[in-house]
Structure formats: structure tokens, C-alpha cells
Design a protein around this nucleic acid. Structure first.
Length: 289
DNA sequence: AGTTGCCCCTGCGCGC
DNA sequence: TGCGCGCAGGGGCAAC
């Protein structure tokens, strides 16, 4: 569920609780919550014990907490991951996967119903990025993100524009919701061939992705509860502001035509049939959609 | 090499 | 009321 704005809200929310805090104890309640750690959960816990955490970072939907040994604790929330800061007296959540107890006495809990998310430890490269996420492209909030360069790379893709927007090696942070919102704002159908977009269209849809995520970030930030480091699973705190996602049958705010939902790559795509007309021929297929 | 499809999970709401 | 099915906002990786 969480896309870039939600992950960034978690990162900023978690920061004051972890920065300069020492880990005294780590409990793993579900093996799947620990990823890419061949030595297993007990080794994972042993490696974290005694480490002091630094200011959390983020790229796209990945976030990490640098450790005082030069490595980092990486987290991906998957579809349902949450972080929660709790007191020692709090009852265990049903989907509690990992609990990190700090010297302050507070506990950082990783809770994940669907277990698509997880934690792991990794080395950092010279630029301060965990080596295992080197393949993740810069996101639109990265100071070195270049929208023109990203638009050029987008226009070389031999795939539908929405598939490209969701590809985290092209630009990171965009998920199914914000892809649909960006396409609606740019008035592009999700099935448009990336290589047939004009440069202006490519720049537009990428710029709109940034704009809509920034708006979500502002709202997410305002609803942040310091003791319950978001993202609350069903939340939808930004839902009111969505123009197409989840609005099947409701009128498009721009033209009044009913929003449509269609299946797309094991997910859904929402779009306005008037503002976002389908291409004569969808990219990557010989038939009309 | 670039692109696509499959799969990992649990829970909830809906229709029968 | 009960049950089966579709669906959920992600990403890694095998296969083409």
C-alpha cells in the first residue's frame, strides 16, 4: 500500500525516536519479515544489538536507518507494513513481526499483515546508499533527480506508459495510485506507448507524479500521530483528494464523464474515458484495448 | 538486454 | 449465517 509519500511520512515520524538511540534487544516473531539475511533471524538480532542508529534515509519506497558500524537497517513496507512506537506495557499487535527495544525503553515495532514487507541489514556504498538498492532509481524528491533525463529514458521504453511509471528502475516512489493520478493530471491513457509520447507529455506526466505525491506528503504529515508512526493500513487520509483512484463510476472532476476501472497487470487502472482516450493501438499488444 | 508474467501472503467485503 | 471468490496501494526474479 504505501507509496513514496507514506514511506516518507513514516521516515520523518520515526526519526526522532531512533536517532542516536542504542538498540538493546531485537525480537523476530516471523521469519519472513527478515529478508536477504542468509544467517537467519537470530544472527540478524545479534548484529543489531548494541548498535546506535542515525538519521533515517529513503529512496523511493525503501527506507533505512544508518547504524554506527557503517551499515544500515533497511525496511520495505510492502503492501501492509507499519512501524509503531510503543511503550513496554503495550499489548502485542496481532501482526507484530519484529520488535526492537531501545535504551530509552521505547520499542520500535514492525507490524505487517501480509508479510510482503521486511527488514534487512546491508552495507552502504560510498554515496551513502545501501548497496542492495543501487538498482532503485532516484525518486522525484531526490535533489539530483533530473526530470528531463528521466523523460528521455521513459520515451525509450517499449512498454505502456503506466508500466514504465511503476518500474522503480526508471523513477522510484510511484505506485499504482499515484501512477493513475499522474496520468489523469497529464491527460494520458495508461496504455499509451511510452516511445510515442512527446517530450512534453513525458515531462508532464513525471512532473504531475511529483506534484500529486507532494500534495499527499503535506496531508500525511499533518495527520501524523507521534505515538503511532503511520501508515495506518486502511487509512486513506489522502483519499479525499484522489481524482480517479478508487472512484469507479463517479464523475470526472474535469469533464463529468464517469471514471472507469479496468484490470491492469494484476491490479486496477482508473481513468476518465474522455480526458484520457485510449491509444489506437496499445503499446505491446496488437489489438485495441 | 529489455520486458513480461508469476508468485509471495492475509484479510475483508461481496454475492450467492 | 456461511462460504467461496475477487481484490488489495509491491517487488524480485525466472523465463521469454
Amino acid at each position: 500500500m504505501p507509496e513514496l509519500p507514506e514511506v516518507e511520512t513514516v521516515r520523518t515520524g520515526l526519526a526522532p525516536f531512533v536517532e542516536n538511540e542504542r538498540i538493546v534487544h531485537v525480537e523476530v516473531f516471523h521469519a519472513r519479515a527478515i529478508r536477504r539475511h542468509v544467517l537467519g533471524a537470530s544472527d540478524f538480532s545479534a548484529q543489531l544489538r548494541g548498535r546506535t542508529m542515525l538519521l533515517p534515509g529513503r529512496r523511493g519506497k525503501y527506507m533505512w536507518v544508518p547504524l554506527d558500524d557503517g551499515r544500515a537497517l533497511i525496511a520495505h513496507l510492502g503492501m501492509s507494513g507499519q512501524f509503531k512506537v510503543s511503550a513496554s506495557s503495550a499489548a502485542d499487535d496481532r501482526h507484530l513481526r519484529v520488535r526492537i527495544t531501545l535504551a530509552s525503553g521505547q520499542r520500535i515495532e514492525f507490524i505487517d499483515q501480509r508479510t510482503f514487507g521486511g527488514l534487512f541489514i546491508d552495507e552502504m556504498d560510498a554515496s551513502g546508499l545501501p548497496t542492495s538498492i543501487a538498482h532503485i532509481a532516484r525518486d522525484p524528491f531526490d535533489p539530483e533527480y533530473d526530470v528531463d533525463e528521466t523523460a528521455r529514458r521513459l520515451r525509450k521504453r517499449q512498454q505502456q506508459v503506466k508500466r514504465a511509471l511503476l518500474d522503480q528502475t526508471l523513477v522510484s516512489g510511484i505506485g499504482n495510485i499515484y501512477a493513475d493520478e499522474a496520468l489523469w493530471r497529464a491527460q494520458l491513457h495508461f496504455g499509451r506507448a511510452s516511445e510515442r509520447l512527446t517530450n512534453a507529455q513525458a515531462v508532464k506526466v513525471l512532473s504531475e507524479a511529483r506534484t500529486v505525491m507532494e500534495a499527499a506528503l503535506v496531508q500525511g504529515g499533518t495527520s501524523f500521530d507521534e505515538m503511532y508512526v503511520n501508515v495506518n493500513g486502511e487509512s486513506g487520509y489522502f483519499e479525499r483528494s484522489l481524482e480517479v483512484y478508487g472512484r469507479e463510476g463517479q464523475p470526472c472532476s474535469r469533464c463529468g464523464r464517469a471514471i472507469r476501472r479496468v484490470a491492469f497487470a494484476n491490479r486496477s487502472s482508473y481513468f476518465c474515458t474522455r480526458c484520457q482516450p485510449p491509444p489506437r493501438r496499445a503499446a505491446g499488444s496488437a489489438h485495441s484495448p
